[in-house]
Simulated scan of single mutants.
Amino acid sequence: MSDLPSLVADIGGTNTRVALADGKTIRPDSIRRFRNADHPGLETILRLYLDEAGVQDCAGTCVAIAGPVRDGVATMTNLDWTIDCPSLSRATGAEVVAILNDLQAQGHALGHIAADKLDCVIEGPMPDHAAKLVVGAGTGFNAAPVHETPWGRIVAASECGHINMPIRTDADLRLARFVETAHGFPGVEDVLAGRGLERLYAFIRSEHGNPGEKSASDIMADLAAGDALAEETGRLYVRLMGSEIGNLALIHLPFGGIYLIGGVARAFQPYLKRFDFAGAFRDKGRFAGFMANFSVQVIEDDYAALTGCAVYLQQGGKG
């Protein structure tokens, strides 16, 4: 079985990436992307992938999913799928199977990402032995603390995208009341996920007495073109993002560094310094100076979660 590849997958709200791994190393030419809406569930995708790859057996299977995992059962936050270990075994024939939250997988990938795939946003000390934090902003928003212990790495799951959004100003309070109409609660995802960017734009339009909506992709295109409303939206997004990640830094004390992932985080990468992400991150009153203890980097490796799944399996993780 040791000569067989492992199968790893990263299941997001929109797409699923699947690949084969030899130990901790992903086979680059094996990576495939599937659109979730085209398939009834993950089992179908994994069977299709293995059939097309001509693979009959796997050493193990580990998947990362965008949602909570409890007692070996994963429920997607932004997709109507439920995934469990028996279904992974049926789909792949693997006896060793594991399910991770997607941020947990990213956490296990730290230390296995090439240096040229990391872009520094805020410089700071990064001791290897210290706690770290992975923050994802994409279809959803979430974070996972990474702790190095004498018995190995522990990456804790969370659902912090569903806590209350940061409120610093009177305008933020108006924003909270504006976005809470979607779910009855102004959550972090309602302002910092992809749909959150759309709500910020709609809020700014309403504040200007000119109601209107646009898709996140159109807002980003307008921002690149220098549109004033899109720039105001971008500045608000970066301030709220910096404030919330600063909150998480104080909660988890990731002296080993903070790592940003996800499509929205990557889209805003060119604007983080321009819109003073660091200033919002450090806006913590008498603890403003303390915030200099934390570095922030953007992970530019689109397949880091796949690597994290492979590392988890190779280190004996299961369940």
Rank of each mutant, 00 (worst) to 15 (best):
T44M: 05
I45K: 04
L48M: 03
D51R: 15
A53Y: 08
P68G: 10
M76H: 11
M76N: 00
T77W: 12
D80E: 14
W81P: 01
D84R: 04
P86W: 09
P86S: 13
S89K: 08
I99A: 01
N101T: 08
D102G: 06
Q104L: 07
Q106S: 11
G111S: 04
D116A: 14
K117E: 12
K117T: 03
D119P: 01
P125N: 03
M126I: 00
P127K: 13
H129V: 00
K132E: 00
L133P: 07
T139F: 07
G140C: 09
P145M: 15
V146K: 01
R153Y: 03
P166Y: 05
R168H: 08
L175K: 02
L175R: 03
A176V: 05
A176K: 06
V179H: 07
V179G: 06
H183W: 09
P186T: 05
G187Y: 06
A193W: 10
A193K: 12
L197D: 05
A202I: 12
F203T: 03
R205L: 06
P211K: 12
G212L: 09
I219G: 08
A224P: 08
A224R: 13
A228S: 03
A230C: 13
E232L: 02
E232I: 00
R235Y: 09
M241C: 06
G242V: 07
L248H: 02
L248W: 08
I251Q: 15
F255H: 08
G256D: 02
I258D: 03
I261E: 03
G262L: 01
F268H: 02
Q269N: 07
P270H: 08
P270T: 07
F277H: 11
K284T: 08
M291D: 06
V298T: 12
V298S: 11
D301M: 10
Q314L: 09
